[in-house]
Design a protein around this nucleic acid. Structure first.
Lengths: 190, 190
DNA sequence: CTAAAACTGCAAACGCCGTTCGCGGTTTCG
DNA sequence: CGAAACCGCGAACGGCGTTTGCAGTTTTAG
């Protein structure tokens, strides 16, 4: 499993083939099936192993929103360390113990929030999703320039990219996460 | 290409193999390479073809936020019609003409918003991302019950799922999209 | 009209993939 | 010590994306 994660970190999730992992272990591909039922099984184990890196969890502070943002940042860092995670996560699979523990901790942080359980679940799911979106965008190699695009057909886009109006630098991730959590969990801001 | 979309709608993106598409066209797999350079090429064409279904675009109304939400709903409906889209989109690929046209329309809707161009780009990207998150969640077959999970190890989760506090039904998608767009595009709400 | 050029469909083949299976060799346990 | 369990291994199966050479057809040029 550690070998599989090493391969994924180095060459991407596409390089995590049974033969490649087995080769890293100096053994044959078929031998892995003594311990795994399938490749999906291996991926599940890799995900939960990576989720374990989120420990130790930061303590809950005074402001639950700040704490949640800190949790989100930790997860974003995890995605940066293991870019293959964002590609592997969106499979319909049961969460492992480490993932459940992290989810449990999120619920603990949200304890002082007066919202329904269902709402909290949705909010956490959204926070995870938004974090994965940012990780994916960062991973995508070059911020696609508009080379080779006929701008004549897209007037608004043409006008936009020639607009030199500067934007004040800000923490886009923090802004988005806060907006989502506040929008879902705080009544008057819905 | 229409054949490929038909296969994907019926049996998922995994069933879109060169041989399957060729079989639907009563031809051989290799023959497709007379018109496509690779399988990724086919997927790109499928995506842009699907993006064409977003036309005609709804006219911009008085409230740009309402209009953007309507655009997001149209896109969510598209994802519902073609669930394979959410699995195919997150590849690093250049957007096709239909996708660009839709993006251009979004910029037109955001014209009255006093924000930097970069900010608008980020906001649109986030809207697309959040929409895909919802589509993915809907597609994921059964809302995973907590069967077979040892709740003893996760106290907060155990307490949460036994909590019968009802939540007022609300439009989660609208709430989230509005929160994100407002958080990114409206100054005082950051 | 004819000959050359371009295009098209097709089957076979290559190398990769996940997975299964049966074989000997090794370890563990009664 | 013998039996049972476990282990690693190579071969094999079917499927995948893709390449390639060969016929047949269509278009173009002389």
């Amino acid at each position: 499993m550690a070998a599989a994660i090493a391969v994924a970190d180095a060459d991407g999730i596409g390089a995590v083939s049974m033969r490649a992992v087995a080769a890293a272990l100096h053994t044959g591909a078929g031998s892995l099936y003594r311990y795994l039922s399938s490749r999906d099984d291996l991926l599940d184990l890799m995900v939960d192993q990576a989720a374990g890196e989120l420990r130790p969890y930061p303590e809950a502070g005074d402001d639950w929103l700040d704490t949640m943002l800190l949790l989100a940042r930790r997860q974003l860092d995890l995605y940066r360390r293991h870019p293959w995670l964002v590609a592997v996560l969106p499979r319909p699979t049961a969460p492992g113990p480490q993932s459940l523990a992290w989810f449990d901790h999120c619920l603990a942080v949200l304890r002082p929030v007066p919202a329904a359980t269902t709402t909290k679940f949705e909010a956490i799911a959204m926070m995870i999703g938004v974090t994965s979106l940012f990780a994916r965008q960062e991973t995508a190699a070059p911020p696609v320039g508009f080379t080779g695009i006929d701008l004549a057909a897209y007037p608004n886009l043409a006008a936009a990219i020639t607009d030199p109006s500067p934007s004040a630098p800000r923490d886009l991730f923090a802004t988005t996460v806060r907006s989502v959590l506040r929008g879902l969990l705080v009544d008057d801001a819905g």
